[in-house]
């Protein structure tokens, strides 16, 4: 009889353990999604007017720059790098586009030039890191600071407006009078990056370099090409985000466009589960991460909490996400 009791105790213990492991795995696997849903549910109760079309529209519209830059940053972080110059690149690209546009170079050439500027910034970061072996955080910090100055030099002044022009029209264009252009671009970029990460040799090599750079080199991976490639992609996406942001608000302030976007973007990638020690890029995770970060900003605004609290909240979220990443590894 005693034997029986002890047996049954053992059994229930075992089951409990299995259940716990299962729950842990589910939490790790879908943690970002669960967090996103919880955040939505919580705010449906505590935030006034949260459940409305307006909130959804704001979320999807305002998340645009964070989303684009996060997907670029995801690739950089996947290669075991970091790019904190993304905000400055946004400003540089937008300055080039707005300046050329104001000099009547035409809409398309101006935007192309702006994107080329983003590409060049990424090329600069990438070459400095891959060829001259400068730490990513150092070289991108330099561009982060110098880039703001450069943007103002290019623009020739601190800010410039362009109301009622074709560039301003582009920023508020709605497909069928309903779907904002930002949402279309955002969806296209997510799909393209998602496809790119899943199917290309380049993306697989990014993951390999991030996970073990030395072994990748000895297996014939072209390390400089991969490193330069990810920073260029990140630069172009940042440039596109900057140009569209300027277009949306019909003006540019070179000193403030994209300011502090680094924090949001790094938070989005961390929440998304891409390992900061390099490795598998998580596209859907990053998408959700960007939505969560923007949601936090919106919630803070809607509850009349002062802006600086949102910075602290985001910092806490980053630390928490990184801690969970470590636990998982």
């Amino acid at each position: 009889m005693i034997k029986n009791t002890s047996l049954s105790v053992n059994d229930s213990k075992g089951e409990g353990l299995v259940w716990k492991l299962d729950l842990q795995r589910t939490l790790y696997k879908h943690g970002t999604l669960i967090f996103f849903v919880l955040l939505l549910l919580l705010n449906a109760f505590i935030t006034p007017n949260f459940v409305s079309y307006g909130t959804l529209r704001n979320l999807l519209l305002q998340v645009f720059p964070i989303m684009l830059v996060s997907l670029g940053m995801m690739l950089v972080i996947s290669s075991e790098g970091i790019d904190i110059s993304v905000g400055a690149i946004m400003s540089i690209s937008a300055s080039v586009t707005v300046k050329l546009f104001s000099l009547e170079f035409g809409l398309i050439p101006s935007i192309m030039a702006g994107l080329a500027a983003g590409c060049l910034c990424g090329l600069f970061n990438g070459i400095m890191i891959a060829r001259f072996k400068i730490q990513p955080i150092v070289i991108t910090l330099i561009l982060m600071i110098a880039g703001r100055g450069l943007a103002q030099i290019i623009l020739g002044e601190l800010s410039l407006s362009f109301y009622y022009t074709s560039l301003a029209d582009l920023g508020s264009f709605k497909l069928g009078g309903l779907i904002p252009v930002q949402m279309i671009i955002m969806l296209a970029v997510i799909l393209v990056i998602g496809f790119f990460v899943k199917t290309t040799v380049f993306a697989r090599h990014v993951e390999a370099v991030g996970d073990n750079c030395r072994a990748s080199k000895l297996s014939g991976v072209n390390i400089p090409l991969i490193i330069i490639g990810v920073y260029v992609l990140c630069g172009v996406l940042s440039g596109l985000a900057g140009i569209m942001e300027a277009a949306r608000i019909n003006s540019i302030n070179a000193a403030s466009l994209g300011l502090m976007v680094e924090l949001d973007v790094i938070a989005a990638v961390a929440i998304g589960g891409t390992p900061f020690t390099g490795g598998k890029p998580r596209v859907m995770g990053t998408v959700l991460g960007a939505l969560i970060v923007q949601l936090v900003t919106i919630i803070v605004n809607m509850n009349n909490i002062q802006f600086h609290y949102s910075l602290v909240i985001k910092a806490i979220i980053i630390v928490l996400a990184l801690y969970l990443q470590k636990e998982q590894a």
């Binding site: 090599h205 072994a215 990748s216």
Partner: peptide, 27 residues
């Protein structure tokens, strides 16, 4: 200097010949 620890056995085995396994740019 050898393993890509967090990648799968499949990805580790095919790391060197990966560029030869693509069709129209897709692995």
């Amino acid at each position: 200097e050898g393993l890509i620890p967090n990648m799968s056995v499949v990805d580790n085995i095919t790391l060197v010949i990966l560029p030869e396994l693509k069709k129209r740019g897709i692995i």
